[in-house]
Amino acid sequence: MTDTVLKVRDLAVDFKTDLGTTHALVDVGFDMPRGKVTAIVGESGSGKSVTANCIMRLIQPPGRIVAGTIDFSPVRMDPFEITSLGKRDPRLQELRGGLISMVFQEPMTALSPVYTVGNQVAEAILCHRKVGRKQAWQEAAEMLERVGIDDIDRRIRMYPFEFSGGMRQRVVIAMALVCHPEVLICDEPTTALDVTIQAEILTLIRDLQKELSNSVLFITHDIGVVAQLADQVVVMYQGRVLEIGTVRQVLKTPMHPYTRGLLAAIPGLAPKGVPLATIASVVGDADIEKPYPLITLRDGRQVSLPRDQVQGAVA
């Protein structure tokens, strides 16, 4: 057993359309340390969600994984490589929702409107484990209580539309955790929520992660959310990884000009009356469109910059 749960290497995804081929991911690589929270941060179109969908093998035509590997080392199974799994490989079923599960942005879309919340959480158990209905129902109730749904005997028989946005997201989290996944992928789980509800859901995810010590891949565009949850941060831009480091390295002493721009553009940190820094104004003459391979520095972080620019810091 290694302490890296997921190892992504040289991952490339293309979307072929009538207008040509879009390279959604180009040579994406990072390690996910076991039992930690890794955040992928970037703007729309940076490839955050595509990366997550690759891990779940959810890339659909016209999208295709054209290169790269994702090595997965679960505790309760032998390690295997995800991108080469055949469609009928039983490990693919086990992967989706069993070993790895996902929480999406829109809880109303992720839940079926025609089944009770109890039914939906219990179904997740019945899909992956050989247990009876009664026990599945019992475990569903326990998990729903654990994510903060009270008055459970009544609420478990209610439908998603009877729940508020925050409570729906709690149900989705319960569904995702009920099979004890080793990796939990959260794709912008709080973006659609009010700031107060977001704070509660973030606290819940953080507490559950500490309690269950599973590995979390958290996708977001919100630096505040990254700062509060992440141990490690992966910065993506235009399908490429620009910088990887600990949360303090990346947010306190960003090295890549794009990361610096991303942080400078947050309103509220800027003094009043002064125009906000835009990414373009911070990046300046640096050419962030040109791809450079990630270089590992002495302090452990990785950055995609020309070698001569980071000479002194290279490991």
Partner: peptide, 19 residues
């Protein structure tokens, strides 16, 4: 105060407190 305390700080050393 509740609303303001719910905003996650972009500083990792300023932790989000339970509401």
């Amino acid at each position: 105060r509740l609303l303001l305390s719910a905003v996650p700080s972009p500083d990792p050393d300023v932790p989000l407190k339970p509401l």
